[in-house]
Amino acid sequence: MLNGLAILFTFQLAGEIVAYLLGGWVPGPVVGMAMIAVALTLTRSTSFLNPAHEGTVSTSKTILANLGILFVPAGVGIIQHLDLIRDRGFALLAVVVLSTVATLTLTVWTFILVKRLSGGYGND
């Protein structure tokens, strides 16, 4: 548990530092995520400093299994925008629904098209 938290926080810290040095166009935690994935491919030992250590994995699973609650504090911030929802709620809804449908359609067909072109489905 503690090892896991230490590793996650350390990678986030490292990610924040790298993100700052890169000019801040990419979020630090995202850099940290890439770094932990790279570190996992590079190291294979089971020392407690290794990100693959059991503590890290179980801590990560616990956090990710309850990821939803982490969005609540920010989501409650919607109470600062109640007038926006009252005035433009339907427009907001339309934006969300239409762009979701458009994105889904384009994404799935690109995937299938490229996979077909690159022979990912075999020759049949």
């Binding site: 996650l8 935690p29 995202v30």
Partner: peptide, 19 residues
């Protein structure tokens, strides 16, 4: 904010399933 802060480590933790 203590819950909110955990979003950072949670994002980092996503690196493990990615791997």
């Amino acid at each position: 904010q203590f819950i909110h802060f955990l979003l950072g480590p949670a994002t980092v933790a996503l690196g493990i399933p990615l791997y």
